[in-house]
Write a protein that binds this DNA or RNA. Sequence first.
DNA 1: CATACGTACAACCATATGGTTGTACGTATC
DNA 2: GATACGTACAACCATATGGTTGTACGTATG
Lengths: 125, 125
Amino acid sequence: MGETITAERADAVFGALADATRRDILSRAMGGDLGISELAEHYPMSFAAVQKHVAVLEGAGLVRKRADGRRRVVTTDMDGLRNASVVLDHYEELWRGRIDRMHELLDEDGLPSPDTDTPDQEDRT
Amino acid sequence: MGETITAERADAVFGALADATRRDILSRAMGGDLGISELAEHYPMSFAAVQKHVAVLEGAGLVRKRADGRRRVVTTDMDGLRNASVVLDHYEELWRGRIDRMHELLDEDGLPSPDTDTPDQEDRT
DNA sequence: CATACGTACAACCATATGGTTGTACGTATC
DNA sequence: GATACGTACAACCATATGGTTGTACGTATG
């Protein structure tokens, strides 16, 4: 349950998802088990480049590689995805709270204190 | 309503959130309206560096700058946050579906087709 | 066993990123 | 009006990132 969100984890997850090719690779990996060269066919770049992207996803714990003969099959890392989900939720809730509070102010039209102090779980060395 | 998710938007949002300092700046911006130099006090880096981080957040549409005398107050961009929320949800649902399907397979123990074809909204030039 | 295939990995390159310092300029303040 | 403050922006630097090609090596296949 209460998975703690570390800054490093968040860095890795957001960083991994900050590239369209990697997001697409992740999507495909969820669809079925594909070898790296099979993945590489879909992109206008070399096999080695795709290999690197997979490595980044792997580093972020979103994906794993399983050996199957001479192929290296890319599979989703269930625990990793679940955990990443927690990371995304954390930030989404953060600003969703802010948005909701905005609505209160707009709807009820007269709440005074803009005392929106959010202590923040992560970071803060 | 049905905000379309573009690859560029996703790149910008994930990219902006892939840095701990920027995530913290965003948190603080949600807490109250702060000038850039006020924000900068909290980080072990120059004013100019913080300025750049704010610019990245601004570019991702998560934050805005409002003039207040000689200060530039950093405020959250409500529409941007809402839209970013949609982006995060998109990917979260993607793999949450995958996780749920996993559970089905484990629980009911005998579903055959791993026919998990997820067409994917964005990208796919 | 020779060959083709899928992969790993190193070297290399161009550009992006995250930081710095320095200068300039509008806006308060004395 | 001089001075201090908050900001903008350019120039610069080191490292990270995203791509390339080339080589090597295990694993199928003829």
